[in-house]
Amino acid sequence: MKLHSKAILIVAALALSACANGGRFGAANGGGADGAAGAASDPRSPAYFQQTIGDRVHFAVDQHTLTPEAIAILDKQADWLLKNPEFTAIVEGHADEQGTAAYNLALSGRRANAVIEYLVSRGVSPARLRPLPLGKERPIALCSREECYAQNRRAVTVIQAGGLS
């Protein structure tokens, strides 16, 4: 048993170092919250998109309809994407923990799709956008109260340099 827990520690340490190097898409790094490329002062950088434009919109319980606040952010996201055609984006959908896993995965996909449909309606090519439903796998706020759930019911537009693989 001792040997075994040591092995787990080593695996955990490797996992941590992998995180520090930046995970692939949002799947491994927890919602595109950290490390968008470039200087935030450069309006053409993904960091600017993330910090100044705003990379995420939030949803009401069980909903995938866009609120007026969400639409205001998505208008700015669309403008940025139209001005910076060399970038593509993965749109992550997320749900809070109040729901069963498979249903919440589908619900998070619906949220990602609502964002994509809106961006496309503003002229962004659908070929530049891809949904990534993450269900309740990657909460950004960890408490089990509505204040955290509200932050977790989100769609995050993660800017990618180059194509969508």
Binding site: I8, V11, A12, A15, C19, G30, E137, R138, P139, I140, L142
Partner: peptide
């Protein structure tokens, strides 16, 4: 599963 809630491995 190992790791914290927001980063489960």
């Amino acid at each position: 599963e190992t790791g914290q809630k927001g980063q489960r491995r």
